[in-house]
Design a protein around this nucleic acid. Structure first.
Ligand SMILES: [Zn+2]
Ligand SMILES: [Zn+2]
Ligand SMILES: [Zn+2]
Ligand SMILES: [Zn+2]
Lengths: 160, 160
DNA sequence: GGATGATATGTTATAATATAACGTCCGGTA
DNA sequence: TACCGGACGTTATATTATAACATATCATCC
């Protein structure tokens, strides 16, 4: 929701995400299989978007013998159930902290630390829908990827 | 600026875009070479984003013997000078109707006809910068790609 | 429990997108 | 003319993603 502090208890992030995913799948009658669960954990390895082939390597290191379709299928499932989002700019994937919540798919991407943070800003949402409507356009999906520098990285850059 | 009417005089779009490009390059002392000019014309072949390899094929049909780097270099140049934008969602490229103008990179993408229209909406821009600032984030670049259905396609869909 | 259909996974191959690396040409300039 | 830097040609390869088909697993019904 807000930018991750550098040395936070990330294990807590992962546990919360996995619990939310289990809950979300239970509610929707979706099967969070071993592979899907493992891929989701790997996506949550950091707050940075991860590429499919990086996930593949990570799976392999865990002894999971997997080919590209394995990872892409898992990611497809996770996206379909709102557990993971794709960052189009980077061809990479990031965990969703609030599955089930309304989300428009708004991301802040820090070019310093590589972190991605999901935004749920109603004003941005409204402004976009209004601008679209003014052009006779009805919105079905938003992809909003904002590159820039987070507070932590800006502070680091200036202290030199 | 607004959605293209189905049977408009597209030649006029192309001529205007090419003139604007010549002017922009002149002002900036950039060399709009034959290949770059040709690629830009091809990008303007429609109001739909075009993939790099489609451009490559089109160049080949014009007898231009080109390899991928040729097209990617031309696209890189055109992007650098604001003559072309990349649509991250589609790995494709679209001409900019107003090079030199301030543009935040906001696009409406119709899933019916495939058209892409660039928006320059200050309210969207403001809302995003404000939302980013609230998270201590300073924006350097926006990628806003809004999928949906344009007025023309919606009308077509309903008349059945 | 065994048959059955749907869903999930394994496996191989290949498609689609993008870049690295290096040599050559060409246009302007001293 | 000799030089320099940007532009281009060419080959190879990296990166991302999907097609196609075989096999396995799971849930359900009898
Ligand atoms: Zn964390
Ligand atoms: Zn940062
Ligand atoms: Zn037109
Ligand atoms: Zn349309």
């Amino acid at each position: 929701m807000s930018f991750p502090v550098p040395h936070h208890d990330h294990g807590a992030c992962v546990r919360a995400a996995m619990a939310a995913a289990e809950e979300q799948c239970r509610r929707r009658g979706a099967r969070l299989t071993d592979i899907r669960r493992r891929v989701l954990e790997l996506v949550w390895g950091s707050h940075q978007p991860v590429g499919a082939y990086a996930l593949l390597d990570a799976l392999a290191k865990g002894g999971w013998s997997a080919a590209p379709p394995t990872v892409y299928r898992a990611l497809e499932f996770l996206q379909a159930h709102g557990l993971v989002h794709r960052i189009a700019l980077f061809n990479a994937f990031i965990g969703c902290a609030r599955p089930g919540h309304h989300h428009a798919g708004q991301f802040l991407l820090c070019s310093g630390c590589g972190s991605a943070v999901e935004l749920e800003d109603a004003k941005v949402d409204d402004a976009i829908i209004a601008a679209a409507a003014r052009n006779g356009f009805s919105v079905t999906r938003q992809t909003i990827e904002i590159e820039g520098v987070c507070a932590t990285c800006r502070a680091k850059g200036q202290e030199q």
